[in-house]
């Protein structure tokens, strides 16, 4: 009778597996890509005339190559930009220094006054990307707060807590993110 082979000691199996586990734990990057999602406008036809928009419906934001802001011909700052945009886009009935208001009939909301305001953003080629993102972020914040307020009033929930698709669409329609980016220009030199 052949001698029985000694059993392989499996006690260290756990250690080996642990080692591998730690390796994968360390190398795993669970980075979720986050960012500001935007939609670019289709290319413009050079023969087409730009649409006529009333002066009071536009909020001009210019960013120069030194990352300084000009908001409606006055020097602006990132800290006040959000509130300025919010003030501009909110509804001021019968105030001629603010944008026109149209009454839209939206399902679930009924007749809602919506601002015809438009935020026009123009930046120089020398503007830093960081500044550009900060400005975009402030604009997004302003619109989000407006949406939150309307959503609170109509549905008793904040905008990003809404689950029903039709409610989200209704709010989106009442407060569209009207940001227009000017065709690029080179003013300040590179």
């Amino acid at each position: 009778m052949a001698r029985k082979l000694p059993e392989v000691n499996a006690g260290s199996m756990a250690d080996i597996a642990f080692l591998l586990l730690v390796f994968f734990l360390v190398t795993t990057t669970m980075d979720v890509d986050t960012g500001l999602i935007r939609k670019l406008p289709p290319p413009v036809d050079p023969n087409q005339k730009p649409p006529d928009i009333k002066e009071r419906n536009i909020m001009n934001i210019l960013v120069n190559s030194r990352d300084r802001l000009l908001v409606n011909n006055k020097e602006g700052s990132l800290y006040t930009l959000k509130d300025e945009v919010k003030d501009f886009m909110s509804i001021h009935p019968d105030n001629l220094s603010y944008p026109d208001i149209t009454i839209k009939n939206i399902e679930l909301l009924g007749d809602v006054p919506t601002s015809k305001g438009l935020v026009s953003l123009k930046n120089d080629r020398g503007t830093s990307y960081k500044m550009y993102i900060q400005v975009q972020n402030e604009l997004a914040r302003a619109f989000k707060e407006l949406k939150d307020e309307l959503s609170m009033e109509k549905f008793g929930k904040k905008y990003d807590k809404l689950v029903k698709e039709d409610q989200i669409n209704a709010i989106d329609e009442a407060i569209p993110m009207r940001i227009s980016e000017a065709e690029p220009q080179n003013i300040g030199g590179n």
Partner: peptide
């Protein structure tokens, strides 16, 4: 990169508009 000048980014965006890749994401 946050230190990049907008000139390059604008050029890229113009190219994307031309080919109809309208959905973009500024990764942050």
């Amino acid at each position: 990169d946050e230190a990049t000048k907008m000139g390059v980014v604008t050029d890229v965006k113009q190219e994307l508009r031309k080919v109809g890749a309208f959905k973009i994401n500024y990764s942050t």
